[in-house]
């Protein structure tokens, strides 16, 4: 069963310059919610941004990861 830390690490390793916050939505270890911030998302549609993150997990989504709810953002300009 994946942990929030593991999901966070995998997203941050796969999506360039990203930072992810992951929480276990239900406490059951299979419904997760993640907020991912990365400059890579700039210029991509929301669909493409989410696809980038979903691609990290492939067939695990729908399997061991029953649901991964996503919010994606480009970092705010400082």
């Amino acid at each position: 069963m994946p942990t929030t830390d593991e999901i966070k690490r995998r997203i941050e390793a796969a999506v360039p310059q990203s930072s992810a916050e992951v929480e276990d939505w239900t406490g059951g270890g299979d419904h997760f919610r993640a907020t991912v911030v990365s400059p890579t998302f700039d210029g991509l549609s929301r669909i493409q941004q989410h696809q980038l993150v979903y691609a990290v997990f492939g067939a695990e989504i729908g399997g061991p990861i029953h649901a991964l709810s996503l919010t994606t953002r480009v970092p705010e300009q400082a």
Binding site: I47, H50, Q51, Y54, A59, A67
Partner: peptide
Amino acid sequence: WPTIPQLFHEGELVG
């Protein structure tokens, strides 16, 4: 797109 639901409009995945 790995999850359900999926909404399409005019042939395009909306989300």
